[in-house]
Each structure stands twice: as C-alpha cells, then as structure tokens.
Design a protein around this nucleic acid. Structure first.
Lengths: 168, 168
DNA sequence: CAAGATTGATTCCTCAATCTTG
DNA sequence: CAAGATTGAGGAATCAATCTTG
C-alpha cells in the first residue's frame, strides 16, 4: 500500500461536515469510506465467491443464479427475457449464458407453445444434480464471507437500504 | 417480472429462523434480500454511474479512479503495482488501462529512477483538466444515486460494515 | 530466483443490427 | 410496428507466460 494513501484509510472520525456535502464538492472521509468501501467490498466478495464456485463446481456465479431461478420456477423453466429481469444480465447476456449451459448439458431449450417468439430454458436433470451439489458449499461461502459478518438487525438494515436505492 | 418470483421480493418479515441459518441450508428470505440486494444494487449503481461518466466525460469509472489517485499522489504519479493495490484491478488490468489513458493523453509513463523494473504513471495537465471537469458531476451522481439515500448514521454503519468484511 | 510490468489468449458481457412472430 | 431472441463486433478484464532487472 503506497504510504501516501494509508492516511485516507484510517477509520473516518465523526465529522460535522455533512452540511457541506452536497452538490459536487469533494467527498467527506465518511462518504468516501461508504462509497469506495462498497465498490471494494463487492469486488472482493464476488471474486472470492465466484472463485470458490468455479473451483469446486465449475460454475460461475451468474450460472448458479440462473440454475437456481430455473430450479425454483414452475416446470423448472423460464423464458430468456424473464431470466434477464430476474438477474443483473442483459437479454443477450442471458442468451449467451444459456447457450453455454446448454452446451454443458445443464439446461435445455424448448419452444414456447403460446408465443412462438419466446424460448424456454429448462433445467435438465443433470443441471438439477449439479446445482444440488453446488448449493450447500456455495451458500456456506456466502454466509462465511458476507452474511455471518452482520447481525440480524444489520441484515435487515442492509436489505432495507438496497430497497431504498432501487426506488430512486 | 415473472409472477412466481414476486413473492420472494416482498420485504422479509421478522423471522426467528436465523438459528437454522448456518452451514449450507437454504437462505432465509432476509439473507436472500441482503445478499441478492447487494449484488443487484451494485450492478444498478455502477452501471448508472459509469454510464453518466461515460456520456458526459468519456471516462470509465475505473479510469476516473486511477486519475483521482494520481491527482492525489505526490508528484501526481504512482507505480503500476501501487495503482493495482489501490483499486479493484489486477496488475495487468491497470497496465492496460494506463495504456488507454496514455493513448488518450491523460497520463504519461515515466521510468523509475531507483528501480528500473518499475514504471510510473503520471497525470498530465490534460488529464488533470479532464479530471477536474468530471469531478463535480461525478460526485453529484454518486451522491444522488447512493450517498444521499442514507443518513449519516447509516453511512457510518456502512463504512464500518465494509471494514468488517475486509478483516475476515 | 523474486518482483515489476507487459502481452497473448481467452472469457464474459454489452450494444446494435437482424430475424421472426404477434 | 413492437416484442422476444440471437448474433456480429468490440470492450474490458483476467490468468499465465514472458521479459527485464534486483
């Protein structure tokens, strides 16, 4: 860590400067810690979780999410665009991911009877098996690296905070 | 939004199930909201902030962060590996990003006198100007989309939470 | 040999264009 | 024409290999 940066990383002390902190003025140390911390925490966490999932089960976090959504869906199938809304991926991103999952045998594509434009992605038995194999260790990793670091009240505050961000 | 998912997105009600919630058992609704909310909030937020920065100033969020670090560094310069530790990028990621910034004229590379293996990236005057032009609107965006949604106590809790994650 | 940096290969994702169907 | 899905082109990031210097 470069020496000139360590000062910026000491825990911010309580400040009364928040009144200044509007518009485009420089971020207060507290604002910086909240924002950069968010970016860094996300990067560290997703890397660690993804690497774990990849090493143990040859699945990316996105692939896991899609398989999980399919497993929970009626008939174990969902349409591409619905998968897109339920994840953080674009429609074309889902299309390509589903392609890869089909090639891996974890998902099969089916035509959509009542709308011939649509396409279903359906979880195969092999996909269900792989998901089942991955689920416990993945959830344990998410708990160990993230959830377990917070108390229940904090988790509620987090969940509520994400919701508040979504509304704006 | 697929109908079968809406139930999972209603705000989690207080639950006493946290005692179960260890190991690899399924996530409680609260845990799910905290974890998925984190992933989704990050995706939405960084996309919005990045798009804004890109549209107004032709800068990616990573580029902004690097320029910012350089502006705050002594002699406006840092070494590639130090930039890597100070950001969420790998060494090769920084190397390629700095390349792009050099091509854009925002950064210049300099040899390192006391260690000929090293390379400095130095902010050019043009880079400083571009950064100055971008700073206010970028910080306003970060405030509007993220910081302003939380009170000061919440920001402190967030900053402290990220710190706690880092320690594990 | 170890450390700093670069580069080739690859992966994953996005946008825009396209095709098909409602 | 609008909506669902796919595909071509391109961007940005990573790992592993390599080169140079300590």
């Amino acid at each position: 860590m470069p020496e000139h940066l360590t000062a910026a990383l000491t825990p911010p002390r309580p400040t009364a400067a928040r009144a200044d902190a509007s518009g485009g003025g420089p971020l207060t140390p507290l604002e910086l810690a909240a924002w950069r911390g968010f970016l860094r925490a996300h990067a560290r966490l997703t890397r660690a979780v993804d690497a774990d999932l990849q090493a143990r089960h040859r699945l990316s976090l996105s692939a896991y999410e899609v398989l999980m959504l399919l497993a929970d869906a009626p008939d174990r199938r969902m349409r591409i665009s619905d998968l897109s809304s339920a994840t953080i991926l674009s429609v074309s991103g889902v299309s390509r991911l589903v392609d890869r999952l089909v090639r891996a045998g974890l998902v099969a594509k089916e035509a959509c009877p009542e709308d011939a434009r649509g396409a279903f992605a359906r979880l195969t038995d092999q996909g269900a098996t792989r998901l089942e194999a991955a689920r416990a260790s993945h959830l344990a990793a998410v708990r160990a690296l993230f959830l377990a670091r917070f108390g229940e009240a904090e988790l509620r505050a987090l969940a509520e905070g994400w919701e508040r961000l979504r509304e704006g």
